[in-house]
Amino acid sequence: MESRVFKPMLAVYVGLFLLFLYGPFIVLGILSFQQGPEGGPQFPITQWSIFWYRDIFGLTPPSRVAPLPIGVSLFRSLVLAGMTMITSTVLGVMAAQAFRKNFPGKTVSFYLIVLGMIVPGILVGLGSGLVATTTGIERHWWSTAFATHVVYTLPFAFLVMLAIFNRFDASVEEAAWSLGVSPITTFRKVTFPLIFPGVLSAMLFAFTLSYDEFSRTLLSSGREQTLPLAIYSTFSVEIHPNVFAFGVLTTLFSFSLLAVYAILMTLSVRRAKRVAIQEAVG
């Protein structure tokens, strides 16, 4: 009896949660198909059009609505996210590898690393800006903002890799060492293929968090705007449907990243199973 009541309630709860989670995206998608070039945020839509999607790519005649400054800012955000992803993932793997052993100050080091994700972003950005101003360092997206993003994303990559290494069977490494294989070769040939799914997860965390970061970038990037800052400066004055259309495209880009991640994860799992079968047969 309890199961008959609990399961429908759980299904309703999950449905409401998904609606709350993706409801804004649905509204965003509907509002993005308004008529142009003078159409504003209005509902219900009187005439459907893909004008604002064409406007994003510069395929419409000039109008009173200023085009979104997404060219250079998008490039900056992608490069910054890529730099942050590589740096945070490498440092996260190295830090998690070090935490497999006991060393003096291990607890303090753990909390110092995790502190980057606990402190409010606006305070981190403000602190980075003040340090740069005090020391005479000019703020740029590729220097001060990059350092701020690494401080923010490193804890996520570190915690992901720490969880992977906590379930890691060290006997496979010991077996390689007993055969005279060097530690570097062991990590490259044995350890890394086994932890590769975790590395992918750390990379995804670091990239998406950096690509979408606003508060830390606002006070540490100087005059050069990344994509979130450029969009904010646009719709802080007046909101137009081209912002909605770009929001839909950005969300689809995020979903495509998840799809690539799922494909790579599936291939990695299949490869691990194939290697395990070959070792069992051998």
Rank of each mutant, 00 (worst) to 15 (best):
M265N: 13
Y53P: 02
G29S: 13
T185F: 10
Q47S: 13
S32F: 11
G40E: 09
L258K: 00
F75C: 01
R223Q: 14
F51V: 01
W142R: 06
S221P: 15
L59C: 02
F196S: 04
E173H: 08
G180N: 09
A272N: 10
L126M: 13
S63T: 10
V108Y: 08
Y22P: 04
V181W: 11
T60F: 10
S201D: 06
G198E: 00
A66D: 14
L78S: 08
S32I: 04
V199I: 13
Q47G: 02
L126D: 06
E2R: 15
T148C: 11
K7R: 14
L209F: 13
V119C: 02
V90G: 05
A98W: 14
F20S: 05
A98C: 12
F25A: 06
A175Y: 08
T148M: 12
T186W: 11
L78M: 12
I184A: 14
G36V: 06
V151G: 04
I239G: 00
I50C: 04
R188W: 15
L78P: 01
T266K: 13
T250L: 15
K273R: 12
I45N: 04
P155G: 05
F17C: 10
G92A: 06
F214N: 03
P8C: 08
F235R: 00
I30T: 07
L179R: 10
E224T: 10
F99D: 09
K7Q: 12
T87R: 01
W48H: 02
V237S: 10
S77T: 08
I30H: 03
V150R: 04
A230H: 11
F17T: 10
M203W: 10
G71M: 08
Y13L: 15
E224L: 11
R167L: 11
A95N: 09
I164H: 04
P197A: 05
T185G: 04
L130Q: 14
Q225L: 15
G129D: 08
G198R: 00
F20Q: 01
F57V: 11
E38D: 14
G15M: 07
M1L: 11
S128T: 15
A145P: 11
V90C: 07
Y261C: 02
V119Y: 09
V5I: 14
R216Q: 12
